[in-house]
């Protein structure tokens, strides 16, 4: 399989960043960037990346299963990740997470039937001083309140 020309160019540059014979180092960036483009690490993507880096399927799969951002199952178009770790928890993040579950009608790790939303409870995302915080895909939202969370989900629903 091939990826978009932009991603192909990125991969070509990426592999050259590492010493000769150590191209395997490009594996995790390649997996994450490919996932961003394709939506998930399908069998086809995993096989393709294994082939390009001369790795066995097992060597790639054991890496995929280790890292929490990597997924073999498609997520929603808007992947909502709510931090409930200490700093955010102290400011009510657990209630925000419950609210999101109810509003979206899905459990942690779930995807809405229309594929628009998925929800995940995440560990610290480095926004402790501006919590409670969440990320929608890679975008940060700071100082989240119940009202802001409702509005955010409503606004995202309108993005088709």
């Amino acid at each position: 399989m091939t990826f978009s020309p932009e991603l192909e160019a990125k991969f070509e540059k990426l592999v050259k960043n590492y010493p000769e014979g150590r191209e395997r180092a490009a594996l995790i960036p390649m997996l994450l960037f490919a996932q961003d483009e394709v939506g998930s690490l399908t069998r086809e993507v995993v096989e393709e990346i294994a082939r390009r880096l001369s790795l066995s399927l097992l060597e790639v799969e054991e890496v995929v299963s280790y890292y929490s951002m990597l997924t073999t199952k498609p997520r929603g178009k808007h992947h909502i990740q709510i931090c409930t770790n200490i700093s955010c928890l102290l400011l009510g993040a657990d209630r925000l997470f419950e609210q999101a579950k109810q509003k979206l009608g899905i459990e942690a790790g779930g995807v809405t039937p229309d594929g628009q939303f998925s929800l995940e409870e995440v560990e610290c995302i480095g926004a402790c001083s501006w919590g409670p915080a969440l990320q929608v895909n890679y975008d940060y939202h700071h100082h989240v309140t119940p009202e802001k969370l409702d509005k955010l989900i409503e606004d995202l629903r309108k993005v088709q």
């Binding site: 180092a25 490009a26 995790i28 997996l31 994450l32 280790y66 890292y67 951002m69 990597l70 560990e123």
Partner: peptide, 25 residues
Amino acid sequence: THTGAGSYECGEESALLESLEGKRG
């Protein structure tokens, strides 16, 4: 730059180096 993919353990220096080499952290 090099990207991680979600693992607290990779903040530990030797795990980070494993991850940099394309392995589990």
